[in-house]
Structures are given as structure tokens and as C-alpha cells.
């Protein structure tokens, strides 16, 4: 099986017609389905949060069969993810897409579990500590996108699980957990 970095690629990735948006609805739906799964799967294993439509994204082309997705196909697959609630357009012109390989509420659950497992129930942490501290090493939280993290933390704040406080700069923005 062909790999991309450490990511195992499904076999349809080597079948040229999957790189052309199919005109027949049923076939296109199936095509979009497998692409959605591949994109989410790849982003999860490679910890990718943002896909730029005009940038070189490894999944958008397969040099082995000399095929690449055109803009229309890229937008179609990502739009399908947006419809599923697994992605969000970051701008009106659909140039950048935020991939939620965990939904925001799932991220919130992961953060709560992380807090419990590390006994941080009443602690204070900066956002940067959560993203890149020793505690989060080896978890999905480590190195996570700041925007996504803030959204998950806001959700938890609304549920009364923590309080976000602002420092003098974004560097010392932090949270106080009260789980």
C-alpha cells in the first residue's frame, strides 16, 4: 500500500477517475464520501488543522498516477465536510478551511479528560501550556490549533467548567479550571 509520510492511503487514491469530480450524482456521492473519510483521517494522523485550497496539500495530487484535484473538486469535498459539521470555511472566498477532525464538543470532552487525568481540576494554565506543555504531550491536544482550542475552551466556559482570563498579551492568556 502506498503511504504518504506515515499515512496509509486507500487504494482509490491510485485510481485516476477519483481525481475528477463525477457528473452522475450517485457516483459523485460515493466519491465524496471516500474523499471526506480520507481527508479527516489524514488530518487526524498528521495533526493538520487548516487546508489552503490553493496550496500544495499532499492529498490534492498523486504524482504516481499524474493526477490532481482541480479547484472545483477540492471545494466540493471540503464543502461536504463543512455540511457534515466537520470543517468550517475560514473566509468568504473559501480559500482556507478549518478541519475539525474532532468536533468542538469532542475537543471539549478531550480537554476535560485531560484535566481529570492530570489532576488539574483547580489549576491555572496558560493557553500555550495546554498546547505545548509536558502534560499534554502524547495527547491530541498537543500542538492543536489555537483557534480550535479557544473555541473548545469557550464552550467549556459557557458550561461553567473553567474561566478564561486575558493577560497583557496573547502569550499569557490563560484558564482557571473548576471542574
Amino acid at each position: 500500500m502506498q503511504t504518504l509520510g506515515e499515512h496509509k492511503l486507500p487504494h482509490f487514491f491510485n485510481y485516476p477517475p477519483y481525481f475528477t469530480l463525477q457528473p452522475v450524482r450517485e457516483t459523485r456521492e460515493k466519491q465524496i464520501q471516500v474523499w471526506k473519510e480520507l481527508i479527516l483521517d489524514y488530518c487526524r494522523t498528521q495533526k493538520v488543522f487548516i487546508i489552503g485550497l490553493e496550496q500544495d496539500f499532499p492529498l490534492f495530487s498523486n504524482p504516481a498516477i499524474e493526477r490532481s484535484l482541480n479547484h472545483e473538486a477540492r471545494e466540493a469535498f471540503l464543502s461536504a465536510l463543512v455540511l457534515d459539521g466537520r470543517a468550517e470555511w475560514m473566509d468568504k472566498s473559501h480559500r482556507q478551511c478549518l478541519i475539525l477532525w474532532h468536533r468542538i464538543k469532542d475537543w471539549a470532552d478531550i480537554i476535560l479528560r485531560f484535566v481529570n487525568e492530570n489532576g488539574l481540576e483547580d489549576s491555572v494554565m496558560t493557553i500555550e501550556e495546554i498546547r505545548s506543555g509536558i502534560e499534554s504531550r502524547g495527547t491530541d491536544i498537543h500542538g492543536m490549533d489555537r483557534t480550535v482550542l479557544m473555541r473548545a475552551l469557550k464552550l467549556l466556559e459557557n458550561k461553567g467548567k473553567l474561566a478564561i482570563f486575558k493577560g497583557t498579551s496573547t502569550d499569557d492568556e490563560g484558564v482557571k479550571f473548576s471542574v
Partner: peptide
């Protein structure tokens, strides 16, 4: 399935039922 991605610009019609790819998918 159609494939418009070839360099020569000619549309190819692929048939999953005759290609071995079907087993993979």
C-alpha cells in the same frame, strides 16, 4: 467513471468492474 486529469486532455472512461481497483475499495 470519467477522468479528465490526463495530460493529453482527452476524457477517459474508467470501468471499476474490469479494473482490479474494485477489490481494494
Amino acid at each position: 467513471m470519467i477522468d479528465d486529469g490526463h495530460r493529453d486532455g482527452k476524457r477517459r472512461y474508467w470501468f471499476p468492474c474490469v479494473s482490479s481497483i474494485s477489490s481494494f475499495v
